[in-house]
Write a protein that binds this DNA or RNA. Structure first.
Length: 734
DNA sequence: GACCTGCTGCGGTTTG
């Protein structure tokens, strides 16, 4: 059998030799054969830096070089501008050799090459979903000329599009691109997270079984992991009070200080990633770690990395990691989860128990990527020193960390939700956008073009209701011409002309922080800003020297003290049913995992002892002062639904990680409300009690009745389990 | 008690 190398275009072969590659990776070998042997859609699932890009592009570019037809041959779509820039660097030389133009097409990319590609489309375009959106509505004629001839659409980081508004948006864009000409094959590049069949179904919804799956084989590196427990040590925990000399007024005698000590001692001399969970934690930890280095007089090895830091500061951290000359540990949020090239790291650490296995796997995938090195994972868990609430005695952070490790070893990953809550919002945007692109469209054609199949499937009656809402006088988004054609209304014109129309997510207004002409990043506008004020940001401390209210620019200069800004959005990352269930399993088990340190093992033992008492007495209801905890051991979605039930009954209830807190009632009183609760167990009726349904960018234009019906559709499958709750209450309240 | 992502076209100015 011919080697896959022999199948490649001669120019591509020459380039491969010039790289000094002695062989092609297995994923590349299989992808080359699959791509050159037909026209099927293909999903390539492999770890970051496994050579997925080359696996797709080596054969595709050879084909493109041989073809006679004009027009763009390959459209590469990525979720980040930084990835487009990375790929342009990696593929630029090869495209030059083959005489194929390679054009970066995003908001920060130069105009000249885009202009040339519009006039004489050839070769490859690397683009973001938002730039596709802009091209389709601003220059539909150019878009048709460029996209009518596509042979392949390559979607990088496909797993990032499997849930949420951006994925639905891209699904709509793909349909619109296909409507312009040929039916290009789709090639998805994905991390090895979750079920590849789900990704295949997203890639080609009408023929998922025809997608060729190419998965990297085995090669699971050895995993070394530890969960480390820390007890808070005094009552000032969580304050950010800092004195003029830059010391915390509580003297840092808290658990985070002990975590920082351990991190500083163990990670200082190698490259690592420390995921801290929130921007605030990143800043807090980076500040403490830097001060430890300052006190001893050694160079600081710990640098913050999050979405509010300027591109420049983030790229410095990424370059230090990739370069490897100076030991560097990035203290990061999720910014370093996606495939920006940062080389390999010695270990991954995480502050706080994981809430998502998908996230944990993705983070772990950054470690142990060399064949002979183990992946190393540390999880730091903090617990209250003196439990106040009975729930504290269950030691749930430690239990969740243990449950997450068990599910990690069991290879569990959360699947995406079947009904995405962003569907109606994305539908509003795509209706407006397609109306502009086509200069008017009939409702039936609209349904065929966008909404006939998943993931954007919408029943004709629901589409009609949505269109009526968009057309009503108050909304004014669309109008219907006498011949039935949909046209833009006044508000529709206004919205689609704005620059922020292209993205399907909202962005908040912010202050920009500048120090000595250098942009540090941004903080939410909600932070009070005044000259003389102190700020902790980018791992350092600053004093405000000037404020430009109109431009929203704040000048700062270094200062010994600083107070961390507010970032939080007020809701926690939801957890999945399986993780909550595994937490109970951990409590009911009696094993002694070796990967718990002594403190964490002590917390686990305490949690289990507590659960033996609570569980023995039914375990459903816990009395805590005037609050009653109903423990469901289900995930956030179910607990949210249960809270809606109690709110509908006139009670004040809030969902938490493993159940619902119902305020102002004892378990006995709750039992007496049972007949009332039973009467409410109807999903339509419950949907009337839900608040805060408008969360996505264009939800404001969706009729409320549609939003409530969609909520009911998302939750109806849980109704039988909800109906079992009153029995739990009755049993426990006796 | 969370995180992340994106952006046109035009007119003016500067630079090679």
């Amino acid at each position: 059998m011919a080697s896959s190398y022999d199948l490649l275009h001669r120019g591509v072969q020459r380039w491969v030799r010039d790289q000094g590659w002695t062989e092609l990776r297995q994923v590349q070998d299989r992808a080359i054969r699959a791509i050159l042997s037909g026209d099927s859609d293909i999903l390539i699932a492999a770890a970051t830096a496994a050579g997925k890009t080359e696996a797709a592009f080596l054969p595709l570019l050879g084909r493109a070089a041989d073809r006679d037809a004009g027009g763009i041959a390959i459209l590469y779509i990525a979720p980040l501008k930084a990835l487009i820039n990375d790929q342009a660097r990696r593929l630029g030389g090869l495209c030059d050799d083959l005489g194929l133009p390679l054009v970066r097409w995003h908001g920060d990319a130069p105009q000249g090459p885009k202009e040339r590609a519009r006039r004489n489309p050839r070769g490859v375009i690397l683009i973001t979903p938002e730039s596709i959106e802009a091209m389709l509505i601003r220059r539909p004629t150019d878009a048709r000329r460029m996209f009518a001839t596509l042979e392949a659409i390559v979607i990088d980081e496909l797993h990032a599009f499997l849930r949420g508004p951006r994925g639905l948006h891209l699904a709509g864009l793909l349909r619109r691109i296909e409507a312009l000409g040929t039916r290009p094959r789709r090639i998805g590049l994905s991390a090895t997270i979750g079920d590849p069949k789900i990704a295949a179904a997203w890639l080609r919804p009408d023929a998922p079984e025809a997608v060729t799956l190419i998965e990297a084989e085995g090669g699971q590196p050895e995993l070394r992991l530890q969960v480390r427990g820390y007890a808070e040590r005094d009552a000032l925990v969580g304050t950010d009070a800092i004195d003029a000399e830059g010391r915390r007024i509580d003297g840092e005698a808290d658990a985070l200080s002990a975590v920082a000590d351990h991190v500083w001692r163990n990670l200082r001399e190698s490259n690592n990633l420390l995921f801290a969970g929130s921007r605030r934690n990143v800043e807090e930890l980076a500040d403490r770690l830097r001060r430890r280095s300052d006190e001893v007089g050694v160079p600081n090895a710990f640098l913050p990395h999050h979405g509010n830091l300027s591109r420049e500061l983030r790229e410095e951290v990424e370059a230090r990691l990739k370069d490897g000359a100076v030991p560097t540990t990035a203290v990061a949020t999720t910014t370093l989860e996606l495939g920006i090239d940062i080389g390999s790291v010695a270990s991954v650490a995480q502050l706080g128990a994981p809430r998502s296995l998908a996230g944990l796997r993705q983070r772990l995938g950054r470690s142990g990527r060399r064949a002979d090195t183990p992946a190393v994972l540390r999880i730091y868990v903090r617990e209250p020193a003196v439990p106040v609430d009975p729930l504290d005695r269950l030691r749930l952070p430690t239990v969740r960390a243990a449950a997450a490790v068990r599910l990690l070893l069991a290879r569990f990953v959360e699947p995406p939700e079947r009904h995405d809550p962003a569907l109606l919002s994305v539908a509003v945007q795509q209706i407006l956008s397609l109306t502009v692109e086509r200069g008017g469209i009939a409702p039936a054609a609209l349904h065929r073009a966008l909404f006939a199949s998943p993931p954007l499937a919408l029943a004709p009656a629901d589409l009609a209701a949505l269109l009526r809402g968009m057309a009503d006088a108050e909304a004014g988004l669309i109008e219907q011409a006498p011949d039935g054609l949909l046209m833009l209304g006044r508000e529709g014109e206004r919205i689609t002309e704005r620059r922020d129309f292209y993205a399907n997510f909202e962005s908040d207004e912010e202050w920009t922080l500048v120090a000595g002409g250098r942009t540090l990043g941004t903080i939410p506008l909600a932070n009070a800003i005044a000259i003389g004020g102190l700020i902790g940001f980018a791992g350092r401390r600053w004093r405000i020297t000037a404020v430009d209210d109109r431009a929203r620019v704040v000048q700062v200069t270094t200062h010994p003290a600083g107070r961390l800004p507010m970032f939080e959005n007020g809701s926690a990352e939801p957890i999945h049913d399986r993780l909550a269930a595994e937490m109970r399993a951990v409590l009911e088990d009696d094993d002694a995992p070796r990967w718990l340190d002594a403190t964490a093992a002590g917390f686990l033992a305490e949690g289990r002892a507590t659960w033996r008492v609570i569980g023995a007495s039914g375990g459903g209801l816990i009395e805590a002062g005037r609050t009653t905890h109903l423990l469901t051991w289900r995930g956030s979605a179910f607990n949210h639904l249960a809270a809606v039930l109690f709110v509908a009954a006139g009670l004040h209830a809030e969902a938490h990680d493993i159940g619902v807190a119902i305020e102002g009632v004892t378990p006995g009183e709750l039992g007496s409300r049972l007949p009332e609760l039973m009467k409410l167990l109807d999903i339509r009726r419950l949907s009337e009690s839900v608040e805060g349904l408008r969360r996505e960018k264009y939800d404001g234009f969706v009729p409320e009745s549609l939003l409530r019906a969609a909520w009911a559709d998302r939750h109806v499958a849980m109704l039988p389990d909800l109906q079992a709750l009153p029995r739990t209450i009755a049993a426990a309240a006796v």
